[in-house]
């Protein structure tokens, strides 16, 4: 079963060097334990572009799909047997990157 762990950014500061180092250690452990599927950092939403092609032609808009103070700044995709394991990994991830983490199961 796969879960998406969204890293929620809710402050003005971005990852410090210590946080980045902790994330590297955490990632290595996830790979060693076989939970790792994929991960990525996304940074600010300023660079986002929204495309809507439900109409006659694609509509391209600058910015994120919704402007919020909190947004997803990065994510992990993990393979875990159940939610308890996913929550444990999310707790480790949250500690490492010093941010809130949202856990969502894939359908």
């Amino acid at each position: 079963m796969q879960y998406l762990l969204n890293v929620i950014h809710d402050s003005a500061e971005f990852a410090t060097e210590a946080e980045q180092a902790a994330i590297v250690v955490f990632n290595q452990q996830m790979k060693a334990d076989g939970y790792w599927v994929f991960a990525g950092g996304l940074g600010v939403t300023d660079n986002a572009t929204v495309v809507d092609n439900r109409g006659d032609e694609p509509l391209v808009t600058d910015g994120p799909f919704v402007e919020t103070k909190e947004y997803v700044v990065g994510f992990w995709i993990i393979e875990a047997p159940d939610l308890d394991v996913a929550l444990k990994l999310a707790a480790g991830g949250s500690k490492a990157c010093n941010r809130k983490v949202e856990v969502r199961p894939f359908l």
């Binding site: 047997p81 159940d82 308890d84 996913a86 856990v103 199961p105 359908l107």
Partner: peptide, 14 residues
């Protein structure tokens, strides 16, 4: 069901 909350007694440490 969707998030697969496990049907078991938690491990001793939890």
């Amino acid at each position: 069901k969707a998030a697969r909350i496990p049907y078991r007694v938690p491990a001793a440490e939890d």
